[in-house]
């Protein structure tokens, strides 16, 4: 039976073009162009690698207004087989809770699923909630912060990159894997696949299609309340120059300023 893989993506404003409004501390996104969330590119690539090895059907999925369509087509142009856009006015203003709920409902609506891939977090809100949230609602196993993973007879073996080191986990499918940014080299779209994607188009589902009542989602069903945003104070660099062959001075400088600690022995 063909492996069924789902890749969750989000279209985000290009982080390089977003700045904090100096007066009211809100994010000004008006100058920013939209891009695919960087970690999602790695999530897609992780899925494509499993498809290369085992054969699979990959569905990319996002919950967004219709402007996300070209990004879904781009994912298909890199090798995904189909794309689902969950688009409904009722979901506007949803935080990560109803978003996870809606995405999980859409995945169930697809039918059988083996592995769901998502980026470790999105570059615009950085919560990292949706992947684990979807796992919860699907009652699937979860491996977060994966830097590489493979599939083996009904199991996912994922290398998780943690602060303390690397943890290798083996979990049964269905599983959700969140993938860290820059953990692989996303392949490029090809002309042939772009043509096929344009011809095939995307699938658009409403809330009704995935079988959720509209009062379960949207701003009113979102527990998060943003009270205010504060700017991160800029760190003044000392700009001290130390010649390359004075490496001892450099190390001493780092120890003296408390950036690094001297070892135990």
């Amino acid at each position: 039976m063909t492996l069924e893989l789902v890749v969750l993506i989000k279209v985000v404003p290009d982080g390089k073009e977003v700045f904090v409004d100096p007066v009211n501390f809100t994010l000004n996104r008006s100058m920013a162009t939209n891009v695919l969330n960087p970690a999602d590119e790695n999530a897609l690539e992780a899925a494509l690698k499993i498809k290369d090895e085992h054969g699979a059907r990959i569905t990319v999925m996002t919950m967004a207004p219709p402007f996300a369509e070209p990004f879904l087509l781009e994912c298909m142009s890199r090798g995904a087989d189909q794309a689902v856009l969950i688009s409904d006015r009722a979901v506007a203003g949803s935080d990560t809770y109803p978003t996870s709920l809606t995405v999980a409902a859409a995945i169930k609506h697809l039918g059988k699923v083996d592995i769901v891939f998502a980026g470790e977090k999105t570059s615009d809100s950085s919560t990292g909630h949706v992947g684990p949230g979807v796992a919860e609602f699907l009652e699937a196993e979860l491996a977060t912060y994966s830097r590489s993973c493979r599939y083996e007879d009904g199991f996912v073996i994922a290398e998780r990159e943690l602060e303390e080191g690397v943890e290798v986990v083996k979990i049964p499918t269905p599983a959700v894997v969140t993938v860290i940014t820059d953990s692989n080299n996303p392949r490029r779209a090809t002309l042939r696949k772009k043509l096929n994607a344009q011809k095939k188009g995307i699938i658009v589902w409403s809330l009704q299609d995935v079988g959720l009542p509209s009062d379960w989602v949207g701003l009113r069903s979102s527990p998060t309340v943003v009270k205010k945003m504060l700017p991160f104070p800029a760190i003044e660099r000392k700009g001290k120059v130390i010649a390359l062959d004075m490496i001892d001075d450099f190390v001493k400088e780092l120890v003296d300023s408390g950036i690094i600690k001297r070892g135990g022995n």
């Binding site: 781009e74 142009s77 490029r188 779209a189 090809t190 002309l191 772009k194 043509l195 344009q198």
Partner: peptide, 9 residues
């Protein structure tokens, strides 16, 4: 016209 962008022949 079928327009495809972002790819180099």
């Amino acid at each position: 016209v079928t327009v495809v962008t972002g790819v180099t022949v």
